[in-house]
Structure formats: C-alpha cells, structure tokens
Design a protein around this nucleic acid. Structure first.
Length: 424
RNA sequence: GGAGAGGUGGCUGAGUGGUCGAAAGCACUGGUUUUGAAAACCAGCGACGGUUUACCCCGUCCCAGGGUUCGAAUCCCUGCCUCUCCGCCA
C-alpha cells in the first residue's frame, strides 16, 4: 500500500508515476473522498469529545449524589448524531482504504519504461548457451518416454497442468530442493523455516495478492477463508505481520521450501507442454526484512544468492530488469533470472527477485524499532526465488542431456543423489 | 468432536460500568552514587491519527466484529486464538 499521506500531499506526482504502469489514478475521486473525510473526521471528533466530557460530568454528579436527570436530557440526541457521523466516517474510510489497496507500488527510478516482457532490459549474461553435436530434445521428450515424467498419470489423478515424477527424476527433483536450502542456509546466511501451505486472507492482503488477484489463487471450501499459497513469499513474509522487530535483529533473512499453487487463470493455451507452467510446483524462497536505507543494496545481494545456485549448477543464464509494464503489483523493482533452455532454444524465467520497499510492510504493519529515534518505523521487504524447482529441473535435464537420452548429474547434486553420475 | 478456563502495554500481571490508556513487577532509557561495574535510589518509558514551530490539547486503540448504556477493559452476542481434561489421530 502507498502512504496515504503521500497522496494527500502529492497526488498529481503519484498519478504521474502510476502512468508508467498504465494505471489511471482518479485524482478527482480521491480528492473528493479525502476532503469529505477530513471534514467529517473533525466534526466526529468534536462530537466524541462532547460525549466524553458529558459522560464524565454525569459520573461526577452521580458520585456526589446529585440529580443527573437534567444532564441526561442535555445529551439525549448526542448519541444518535455521533452514531451517524461515525458510520459515515467508517464508510468513507473504507472507500479510501479500498482505493489504496487497489493501487500498485511506485516504481524505482531505474526501472525502464515499457509495456510488456518484450521491453525488459538484459543487464548481463553468465555462461554460453550449451552447445550440442546433436539436436537437443526438450525435457518432455527426454522425460516422458521412460516414465520419469508422467503427464498422463497426473491428468488422470487430477487434471491438466500437473505431473507425476518417478525414480531418478523424482530423486533429482528432491535433491534440488535440499541443495538450494543447504546453500542458502549454510553459505548465504538465511535461517531455514518451515511454514503453512494454507494462508488466511490477511496474509494474502499483506503481500499484495488480495484483494486484486483472487482469480489467480485456489481457495479452500468451508468456513475458513484459507487459500493455497501461490508462493512461499506469502507465509514467510507474513512472519513479521504486526510485529515490531528490534533493530539489532535486522536484517531478518529466511529461506524455505514450499509448494506453490496457482490457478493460472488467463494463461490458457500458454506453455501447455511440459513442466513450465503448472498448477502445483515447488520453490525455494528467500525473504529479507531490512532497514529502509539498506534495501537497494540487499536486492543486489539477494539477486547474487539466486545467481549462485545457477552458477553452482553450471546453468547458463541472463539477468533481466523488468520494465514498468511487466513489474508486479507490489514491487518497486524486479530482476528476473532467465535460464537457457536448449529444448526451447531460448532463455526462460527461473527466478524473480524484488524489492517491495515499504509497500508490503505498510499493508501488514511490519515495523522495526529505530535504535536512534526509539520509534517504530516501517521496514522494507524483499524476496526472490532461489529457485523455482520444476523449472530448474527442466534446465538441468535439457542442458545436461546426452545423445543417448541419458542425463548427467551436475556435480553439486551428486552428494544428494547417492553419488550416481547420470540418469539413464 | 465434547467439557471447562482464558485473551490487558516489549514480557509477567491487577483492574467494583463512571477523571482507566490502564496498578504493580520485569525489561529498557536517562540521572545520582562508584576508579569502573554491580547494587541501591530518583526519573522517564505503548501505538496510530488530528492540531501545533514546539509544548499543550483532542480523538481512537485493553484479540476481532457487532450490541446494551449518558458512559464499556469491565455487561451481552458472534468469530478467531490459547490453555486444561476427555475422545480421536500421523
């Protein structure tokens, strides 16, 4: 959420900045609501003050044994007036809040202009696209024939966009999770967490998936308002919802593995083949809660932690800065890591690393106590995939394939796979 | 799932429907004392919003949402959560 004070003071600036995202802020509507709110807030407080004073004097009169009936008559209609004013004010406040919850974050000045992923800007590459002296296959042709990846079985069990994995492939999938968690927790300084895979409405509002993007989520039936998490970002970031963190404990760094569930509404017909776009996939997530002045440096560090995984796995990739139109709702700036996929002869997103500044923190009242001022201040949140497991598996399978259809095991994964050299 | 007890400031924990934003203790901060530290003593110490140069002042907040009342931390209803006992269970 943006700071409502910012809108009160500089709404035209904000509107101008939101245009970069092709978002049209209704300045007039906001100003109308806001001026009415201010008026009403003042008059409501006056009424409240009057009520408090008279209640107090009635109490005192009663304590002295005086007749309080005349005083009661004086305040007879106060209650009704106050109730009406409070109700109207509450309605107004919730309209303003609703409007604020629907506005995306302001973009960092370094975010390039653009409307779609075609306008994202490449900032560097690591490694060269893998070369083969035969025609490389994609992961489906490599995995499906021998049952390593069984899309038909998954369709029977559930439906489209799910997968069953078997034997060595299932094991390598699991190995990737262990390898990433170990790397982040042992080498990069993250604390490992295990978290719920169902989250409530407040949590999803906190990180920004609700109220705007409910159609992307799977919602539980029944009396609880629970949703399957679309990313580990949701439960992990919400660890600090409503908390005031000691400055000495900052930055907080968490890593965790979770499944992710996405309805993929609106992407029918897109990436229907293989593991690229599933309703259920695994991810190892990195989340940081940092002091505001540190967040831009921390974004570069966090990006480096994600890159380290790809480098250890020996997978060629490039780093992209998302353009204005492609940057997510809550983020001020996002880097995507795109890994080389020989089967598709292209780079595909495998990680997304973002700085949210105080956008999520304000939604969930996540603060830290500034040691100098002793006051609670909003902290900054960041997160990044480190990495998406399914897509990493695709990248390993396609980049490490041999002409006979076997898959070499990257060195760093061997300890997690009983030392075997290849899948065959 | 059944029965009971609770949810109060960073923590523990008092609170008769009427100067209660809330006793007390701990923690923390500042001071006195001390070569220094500890101890002792004194003082300060919630969040958010409005107003203000600032002080002050005003409002809201005692799990959440409703209700009763001139007035609610306190009474009533609903929900959420925690604890104890029983049942079930990985």
């Amino acid at each position: 959420m943006l700071d409502v004070k910012l809108l009160r003071a500089n709404i035209n600036d904000v509107a101008e900045q939101l245009k970069r995202r092709n978002v049209d802020l209704d300045v007039e509507a906001f100003n109308t609501l806001e001026s009415r709110r201010k008026e009403l807030s003042v008059s409501t407080q006056e009424l409240q003050n009057e009520r408090n004073k008279s209640a107090k004097s009635i109490g005192q009169a009663k304590a002295k044994g005086e007749d309080i009936q005349p005083l009661l008559d004086q305040v007879a209609d106060l209650g009704g007036q106050l109730k009406a004013a409070e109700d109207e004010l509450a309605a107004l406040n919730s309209s303003i809040h609703e409007m604020m919850m629907g506005l995306p974050n302001l973009l960092h000045e370094t975010v390039p202009a653009g409307d779609s992923e075609d306008d994202n800007v490449e900032i560097r590459r690591w490694g060269e696209p893998t070369s083969f002296d035969f025609k490389p296959k994609d992961h489906v042709d490599l995995g499906a024939p021998n049952g390593w990846m069984d899309f038909e079985a998954a369709t029977k069990i559930t439906g489209s966009r799910f997968v069953v994995m078997r034997s060595a492939m299932a094991r390598m999938h699991r190995a990737l999770i262990q390898f990433m968690l170990d790397t982040h927790s042992q080498e990069h300084g993250y604390g490992e967490v295990y978290v719920p895979y169902l989250a409530n409405e407040d949590s999803l509002k906190g990180t920004g998936q609700l109220p705007k993007f409910e159609e992307d989520l799977f919602k539980m039936k029944g009396e609880h308002n629970f949703y399957l998490i679309p990313t580990g970002e949701v439960p992990i970031t919400n660890l600090v919802r409503g908390e005031i963190i000691d400055e000495k404990d900052m930055p907080l760094m968490y890593t965790g593995h979770t499944p992710c569930f996405r309805s993929e509404a609106g992407s029918y017909g897109k990436d229907t083949r293989g593991l690229i776009r599933q309703h259920q996939f695994e991810k190892v997530e990195m989340v940081q809660m940092v002091k505001p002045e540190e967040s831009w440096d921390k974004l570069e560090e966090l990006l480096g932690h994600a890159e380290a995984i790809l480098q250890k796995l020996g997978l060629p990739y490039r780093v992209m800065t998302l353009c204005a139109g492609d940057t997510g709702f809550s983020a001020a700036k996002t880097y995507d890591l795109e890994v080389w996929l020989p089967g598709q002869d292209t780079y595909r997103e495998i990680s997304s690393c973002s700085n949210f500044e105080d956008f999520q923190a304000r939604r969930m009242m996540a603060r830290y106590r500034n040691a100098e001022t002793k006051k609670p201040e909003l902290l900054h949140t960041l997160n990044g995939s480190g990495l998406a497991i399914g897509r990493t598996l695709v990248a390993v399978v396609e980049n490490y394939q041999q002409e006979d259809g076997s898959i070499l095991v990257p060195d760093v994964l061997k300890p997690y796979m009983g030392g075997i050299e290849k899948l065959s």
